[in-house]
């Protein structure tokens, strides 16, 4: 678990409402309203997607919605910047290859 529960300046991480999201088929708990990327990093996810030509792994890079390294398929729509998109109850998040495919399945 990579959450920073106790921090010398920011204090203790308050408990909050949790939501359930599905990531590549696996159900995980996330803090309501947190960014998808943060929820995934909290579970120790190693990479978010793969490139099309060399099938290389990619994760976050800029962290603020500019570089598009962190994109994943969210509720059927690919290329969603996970670092600036908040989680919602029931969200379905999937890795994508290249620019991904549209629609579910």
């Amino acid at each position: 678990m990579n959450r920073i529960v106790d921090h010398p300046i920011l204090g203790h991480l308050e408990e909050t409402e949790m939501v359930t999201i599905t990531v590549d088929g696996e159900k995980i708990q996330a803090r309501k309203g947190e960014m998808i990327a943060a929820a995934l990093i909290a579970t120790g996810k190693q990479y978010f997607r793969r490139t099309i030509k060399l099938v290389e792994p990619r994760g976050i890079y800029c962290g603020i919605g500019r570089c598009t390294d962190c994109v994943m398929k969210v509720n059927g729509i690919p290329n969603i910047r996970t670092c600036i998109t908040p989680v919602e109850e029931g969200m379905v998040i999937e890795s994508q290859i290249g620019v991904g495919t549209w629609g579910r399945g």
Partner: peptide, 17 residues
Amino acid sequence: MGAGAAQTMINLHRVLP
């Protein structure tokens, strides 16, 4: 990642990248 990305994750999102 950028140093700013790490800073965003630890100080804003409270997760260790």
